[in-house]
């Protein structure tokens, strides 16, 4: 029930390769274009950040694994553009009629870029759902994991942290629930917490007895520890 992107704790990936101090921000020009095209298309307003993340996650495991980072972005973007009806497969094949698109008025203009990037897209919302936990409370994460709303759907509860006991560290207020928002089921905001887990609660062979992992988890991912 997990997807290939959910790789926290996985074995076998080898060393992390730090970059050199003078490494360019974009390794090649097309990386920069891929990022910019993706951000610019977001301005068309046909999807939200959770839909966009989920589009990358549901690339086939074979594609997800063999694609480089920005290949995932650009491929998921092409998929989203077709799924949301902005483009057709014929358009992607170059058989488009070259007419101006109905959404063209929404295209991000150069003079608006600075303001759009500076404005951001905050995820906090008012919520009718009362806060169930306070810092110091003991909680347990849902098990089995995965999306409770859609089978195989988007969730931000990583597989390595399902069924684990931890402690509420911070309250972040109420935030949009990605599990819902990624599937067009509404923002469904609910309380969000930083929850701290002992490394020994998550891993068979933790490196150090005092090490910890903190995850941001929504209230519906949590129950009070029995």
């Amino acid at each position: 029930m997990s997807r290939v992107h959910d790789m926290g704790g996985r074995f076998g990936d080898g060393p992390v390769m730090p970059d050199s101090p003078d490494a360019p921000i974009f390794a090649t020009d097309w990386h920069a274009r891929a990022l910019a095209v993706t951000l610019a298309c977001g301005a068309l307003g046909k999807w939200n950040i959770d839909i966009s993340r989920h589009a990358r996650e549901r690339l086939s495991p074979k594609d997800y694994t063999r694609f480089s980072y920005y290949e995932k972005w650009i491929s998921a973007l092409a998929d989203l553009l077709v799924e949301t009806g902005v483009l057709t497969r014929e358009d992607l094949e170059g058989k488009d009629d070259a007419g101006v698109h109905a959404l063209a008025s929404k295209a991000l203009k150069a003079e608006a870029v600075a303001a759009v990037l500076a404005k951001g897209g905050p995820a906090n919302r008012d919520s009718a759902i009362a806060t169930s936990f306070a810092p110091g409370d003991r909680v347990k994460t849902r098990h089995p994991g995965g999306s409770a709303l859609v089978d195989g759907g988007h969730t931000r509860l990583p597989g390595y942290a399902t069924g684990a006991c931890g402690e509420i560290l911070l309250q972040h207020g109420a935030h949009v629930l990605p599990d819902s928002n990624a599937h067009g089921l509404g923002e469904s905001p609910e309380p969000l917490y930083a929850v701290v887990f002992k490394a020994s609660e998550l891993w068979a062979h933790p490196e150090h007895p005092n090490d910890e992992v903190v995850l941001d988890l929504w209230q519906s991912y949590l129950e009070a520890e029995a």
Partner: peptide
């Protein structure tokens, strides 16, 4: 991948859905 990005950028630009100058700005 470089051609994939270029193809998508070309299609979107032709339809007026993205502005290459905005990409440069980003």
């Amino acid at each position: 991948p470089a051609l994939r990005v270029k193809a998508l950028e070309t299609i979107l630009t032709r339809k007026g859905l993205i502005d290459p100058a905005a990409l440069d700005e980003i």
